[in-house]
Design a protein around this nucleic acid. Structure first.
Lengths: 238, 238
DNA sequence: CGACAAGTTGATGTTACTCAAAAGTGGTGG
DNA sequence: CCACCACTTTTGAGTAACATCAACTTGTCG
């Protein structure tokens, strides 16, 4: 989760993801790396953005996990989605936007300002646009998951999604990836209780579909998981 | 639902909504009214956009109801949200975007191309941006609804949302608005079965919270409904 | 070691689903 | 105008999935 150069590409996870979304030229990469030096660290459980408050600028999540959340007055809360390295915060089109949801740091998080795309280079602008479209895709997927999948299917679908996303920034090792969440948090993501999440995870573990220890998950039987759910490919551009 | 001038503002529902999102000047209004003459009619149940297919241009929904949907292979389907008069289709930032969900006409629908904002006038561009932010807000609300509200709460929250949206385009009469949906469709929206939607609607009707006959709903006891749910105000800009 | 958070287990309760059938509704053609 | 059809709404009875409550265990970190 640290921001050391990836031996394969020489890129940090965040840069790996952005470069995968659109062809970035050397100037784009340099601009991001330049701003990444001015990164700021946020500790776990701290609020990164507050619902209703102004968004200053577009930012890149460099490391760590964050999440969007809506809380109800009676204490119920729904986690709307996670923000992973390479994801953008405040990626909107308006002049004076306010945050439509709060964003909290799940783990310690590092963020930096995102370079403003210049007129000439479309690479960065395209990466931002594609990132926004992917975000939208995952929102629709989350709605479908909550509305029409069973508890077991929700977990399977969601784990496959998280792996797919982490994989894009090079944060998976084979079928293994780190998952720094409590079962309570997973429950608030999938619209379940932590007790039920626990039981369903055990079902998956006993069936040999996956392994989870400490903060990481290994998908042992991907076919079994994907047969439980429709696995829609992410396509956002021609 | 026809596009006759609204006696109050002289605006069609679609124009009423767009003008409410950002200050439009006479040129913007004329541009929309001009393109609205080239409207195209789509009959009920026809597909307006297909998941995975290219989006040609930004369009305005002039009249009728449409909906975004994801269908699973086994026949389950989730309605992701509705598109009402004044809503935008294909409101994205990319060069060659593809639709991330299908959009279908619920009722007969009229659409027209949306004017491309010029450099000088920010009114239209702002309306498009705000519209996108509002869409995002409602997606998060739908996630919270499905993940953390009970069946009764989902229905109450959703009815209040629909009324709020229709009200923005002037399509409510007091607390009454038309709701051209079957209970089966409502069920696919709220992640329930039609049988359960039926029972919950009766509960609300018997408690005097609302009245529904044929294709329209009257909210009789708004307080009762809003006490069942958090009613977050829509705010997307400063 | 002790304290606190997280994970696990069992028993029980409730919400919402399933299946099935009846009653209502609207449109169409004879 | 009526008979018929398909679709929608309504009702009932039984069931499954998930929640709730409460205790106990395991880990983790000072």
């Amino acid at each position: 989760m640290r921001n050391e150069p990836n031996p394969e590409q020489g890129f940090s996870p965040a840069l790996t993801r952005l470069a995968a979304l659109a062809p970035l030229d050397a100037g784009d990469v340099a601009a991001i790396q330049q701003l990444a030096r001015a990164r700021s660290a946020i500790s776990a459980r701290r609020e990164i953005m507050t619902e209703g408050k102004a968004i200053r600028e577009r930012q890149i999540l460099l490391s760590g996990w964050a999440y969007r959340v809506r809380s109800l007055r009676d204490g119920r809360r729904q986690i709307l989605g996670f923000l992973l390295p390479g994801d953008l915060l405040g990626n909107c089109r308006q002049a004076n936007p306010v945050a439509v949801t709060s964003v909290m740091a799940m783990t310690p998080v590092e963020i930096c300002p995102a370079p403003t795309p210049s007129e000439s280079d479309g690479g960065l602008a395209q990466a931002y646009a594609v990132s926004g479209a992917i975000d939208e895709h995952y929102l629709y997927r989350q709605i479908t998951r909550l509305g029409r999948l069973s508890a077991l299917e929700r977990i399977a679908d969601w784990l496959l999604e998280i792996r797919e996303r982490l994989s894009l920034s090079g944060l998976t090792v084979g079928n293994r990836f780190s998952l720094p969440l409590t079962q309570e948090t997973i429950a608030d993501t999938l619209g379940l209780t932590s007790v039920h999440v626990n039981r369903m995870l055990q079902t998956l573990r006993r069936s040999g579909a996956l392994e989870f220890t400490g903060g990481s998950v290994t998908i042992l039987d991907e076919d079994q998981l994907s047969q439980m759910v429709d696995v829609p490919p992410v396509r956002v551009s021609q």
